[in-house]
């Protein structure tokens, strides 16, 4: 498979601070590639290097077959970029601002801007500086998507968006993939990466901790579960569940009978959740809560030696 982004020992230092340790990364064409990591992990630095906003201290990157510097404007016209700290100002309307961005990027098909604005529920007639953070973010998304670039580089794309718009955004990302476009996005919200990405890279303190495909992460996912059970005793529940592998932090209590649920169970499950569900099905389940798996925790458990790996 050809790759759209390739980095070789890509390194960025700011003075004595190393923002990005030598990084080797490859993003396959036509995929959705997520980068997760806490703030300050180097996600933004990496993206700025890909767009030639920053210059590498050493190492190199290839984007769509060209180095970001040599590729210049012609390369960047094929990229849609949403910066992590999007700051849009000015007295112009959203439509005028987008028209300007259309002037300096690839050609935008007629009607595209309005269609995207409709999908994101964005009013283009309002002055940019009066827009809320969420609406500015929508403008940023429209300018990144509108010229249907071969590569989308999106830094924290869903920040400030309400849940409905987030879902619409994830749909847009999937459509882009089926369109043959490649999407490179970062987030510290793990669930949204998990929902769309084919592969996930984890950055921490400027180092690549791992690259995995999302399915294998899901298999190893760590979930917190809480169950309320009626018509049984804590001892019986505890005995039943303790036979399960990958179940930790098991806590069974019956000290709150006032709500009519005699037995409360809390536990952490690593990996497949199915055996647990099958086991508790023999009881009468009053309520059940399963937290979303924490991908970062999952991955850090998989690669339990932090701060070492330079890549996979």
């Amino acid at each position: 498979m050809t790759s759209v982004i390739d980095t070789t020992a890509l390194t960025k230092r700011f003075g004595s601070v190393t923002a990005l340790h030598p990084l080797d990364l490859s993003v396959p064409a036509g995929s959705i590639f997520g980068v997760i990591g806490p703030n300050g992990a180097g996600k933004t630095t990496l993206m700025r290097l890909l767009l030639d906003v920053l210059r590498p201290t050493s190492g190199s990157a290839t984007v769509l077959g060209a180095s970001p510097r040599a590729g210049g404007p012609a390369l960047r016209r094929q990229i849609g970029f949403l910066p992590g700290e999007l700051r849009l100002e000015g007295r112009v309307t959203g439509r005028a601002l987008l028209r300007h961005f259309a002037d300096i990027s690839g050609p935008v098909a007629p009607g595209t801007i309005d269609a995207l604005a409709d999908r994101l529920n964005l009013d283009l007639s309002r002055t940019v500086r009066t827009l809320s953070k969420g609406n500015k973010q929508k403008l940023g998304l429209v300018q990144a998507f509108m010229h249907e670039p071969r590569l989308l580089v999106l830094d924290e794309p869903t920040s400030g968006l309400d849940p409905l718009v987030q879902q619409e955004f994830l749909t847009m990302v999937r459509e882009a993939r089926s369109n043959g476009q490649t999407v490179f996005l970062s987030s510290h919200v793990l669930s949204e990466i998990q929902q769309v990405a084919d592969s996930v890279a984890i950055l921490r303190s400027g180092r690549l901790v791992s690259v995995s495909d999302v399915e294998s992460l899901r298999v190893s996912a760590v979930r917190r579960v809480r169950v309320g059970i009626t018509g049984s005793t804590p001892t019986l529940v505890r005995d039943t569940l303790s036979s399960l592998p990958h179940l930790t932090d098991l806590d069974v209590s019956d000290d709150a009978p006032s709500d009519g649920v005699p037995v409360r169970v809390a536990a952490t499950i690593e990996g497949d959740i199915d055996p647990f569900i099958k086991l508790i099905a023999r009881f009468s389940v009053a309520d059940l809560a399963v937290e979303e798996p924490d991908l970062e925790e999952s991955v850090l458990r998989l690669y339990s030696t932090p701060e070492v790996s330079d890549g996979v």
Partner: peptide, 17 residues
Amino acid sequence: ETGSLELTLAHGVSRTQ
């Protein structure tokens, strides 16, 4: 300083231009 330059330069314009 306002952070707008990054987005402009990420488009199809050169710094010389």
